[in-house]
């Protein structure tokens, strides 16, 4: 029992301090403000990052870098009240912050994973450079 607890503690320490295998910038202040807006409005009820979140809307991990999408595209959606998406009334500043947050997320990786190699059920994923 003691052994398993010690292993657990060490393991937790690594997780809490792990550096992702890619260099990403710390989230900027404005991106963090964007994340707060994302949370305050519980966008996660419908949207996902890395496939984690709700199912009513599309995954947003790469909505900034995806072909044909991007900052303008995102802004157009925010106050649109399209389909089941609530009619938000974000100010220009709030929209900027949300975009900054989505940009920061986009930099961290790819999702869905279209390019992956696999063997024995294991999948190696492609990291962003």
């Amino acid at each position: 029992m003691a052994i398993i607890v010690i292993v657990f503690l060490g393991y937790n320490f690594f997780i809490y301090t792990q550096k992702p295998p890619i260099e990403v910038q710390k989230m900027s202040e404005i991106a963090i403000r964007g994340e707060k807006i994302y949370q305050d409005n519980n966008c996660t009820a419908c949207h996902q990052f890395y496939g984690l979140g709700g199912y009513l809307g599309p995954d947003l991990t790469n909505v900034i870098s995806e072909e044909g999408k991007g900052a303008m595209y995102v802004k157009a959606f925010l106050n649109s009240g399209i389909k089941s998406m609530p009619q938000f009334n974000f100010s220009e500043e709030e929209k900027e912050a949300l975009v900054a947050f989505l940009e920061a997320v986009d930099e961290t990786g790819h999702y869905p994973i279209y390019e992956a190699t696999h063997n024995y059920g294991w999948v190696s994923i492609k990291y962003k450079k």
Partner: peptide
């Protein structure tokens, strides 16, 4: 320190 790093945050 957790929040600033999105990958660490979502993992935790």
């Amino acid at each position: 320190s957790i929040r600033e790093n999105f990958i660490r945050d979502i993992t935790v």
